[in-house]
């Protein structure tokens, strides 16, 4: 069989790796220093309605802190995270070099030039890579001629409290809800609550974790478009906040700002569920090239 490959570079839009490097660099710094409007609003609202005086004091410090970070252009948290990048690459885009290399070079420059903490090491020797690379990159090819990236620096304290379980299909939704609530309960004050709880239901072992991460970076205030899933989000948020864990785990009315649930079809024998926890520094920035 004869293989035919047509090259149509001239009809494609070229994005240079230099542009990608520059935008990733600046976005890493911006994400560390400037909290998004959705997260700021969630913190202020939680502060204003918090019942616990200690919880209110904690949320006031968190609110003052994001103002100071933005005004002084310094990171809001010393844990400037492992860099998670969700990429949507338009199929009409031609790149003049390696996408992964460009993203990692942007991370390298951003973490150096922005005085961000380098928090990435070998898992066994624990020797630091010294430049916060490699980033964790999830790439999807989509329609169009744009390159869209969501850059989310992810702190270790909240990531450490995340869980994944392979349920039996017969366990059903109530067991899944209990698992989510119990994950938040066991996490207590460790993940820096108020948190955003991302839940991935379905897919395969790894897909459930990836959609849980997608759920985490969804804009605060958004709902799952499927009304039945949105109802699960509301119920889980009420149950999580009834735990009383509160700001930084010292007791109070807001344990989570939101519970976001994403679903994906799975094998007839399986029911994977992943719960990814995000601290109150809910950092994610979008870049479109």
């Amino acid at each position: 069989m004869k293989r035919s490959v047509t090259r149509q570079k001239d009809t494609m839009r070229t994005i240079t790796t230099d542009e990608i490097i520059a935008r990733v660099r600046e976005t890493c710094i911006e994400a560390a220093c400037n909290l998004g409007e959705d997260a700021k609003k969630a913190i202020i609202e939680a502060r204003d309605r918090e019942e616990s005086p200690t919880g209110k004091e904690v949320l006031s410090q968190i609110a003052d802190n994001f103002e100071i970070a933005e005004t002084e252009s310094v990171p809001m948290c010393q844990d400037t995270g492992l860099t998670i990048v969700f990429v949507e690459l338009g199929r009409e885009v031609h790149l003049d070099g390696s996408l992964e290399d460009a993203i990692n070079e942007g991370v390298r420059r951003g973490y150096k030039d922005g005085y961000l903490r380098k928090s990435v090491c070998d898992p066994l020797t624990r020797v630091n890579t010294t430049d916060n690379t490699p980033a964790i990159i999830h790439t999807k090819i989509v329609e169009g001629d744009k390159l869209r990236m969501i850059i989310a620096p992810k702190g270790g304290g909240s990531e450490n409290m995340s869980t994944l379980k392979m349920f039996k299909p017969s366990d059903g939704i109530e067991a899944i809800k209990d698992f989510v609530v119990n994950t938040v309960k066991i996490a207590g004050g460790n993940p820096c609550p108020p948190t955003v709880v991302g839940v991935g239901i379905g897919g395969s072992f790894e897909k459930s974790a990836i959609i849980a991460k997608h759920a985490v970076i969804r804009t605060l205030g958004s709902k799952n478009p499927d009304a039945s899933v949105a109802a699960i989000e509301d119920e889980l948020l009420a149950r999580v906040n009834a735990l009383g864990i509160g700001p930084m785990g010292l007791g109070g009315s807001t344990t989570a700002f939101a519970v976001h649930v994403e679903t994906h079809p799975c094998h007839i024998a399986s029911l994977p569920v992943a719960v990814n926890i995000q601290c109150h520094a809910d950092r994610h920035k979008e870049v479109i090239l």
């Binding site: 410090q61 003052d64 802190n65 100071i68 310094v74 809001m76 010393q78 004050g189 820096c192 010292l250």
Partner: peptide
Amino acid sequence: LMAVGGAAALIAR
């Protein structure tokens, strides 16, 4: 003692 997690710019002062 607990310092507020994430209040890193405020604490630095």
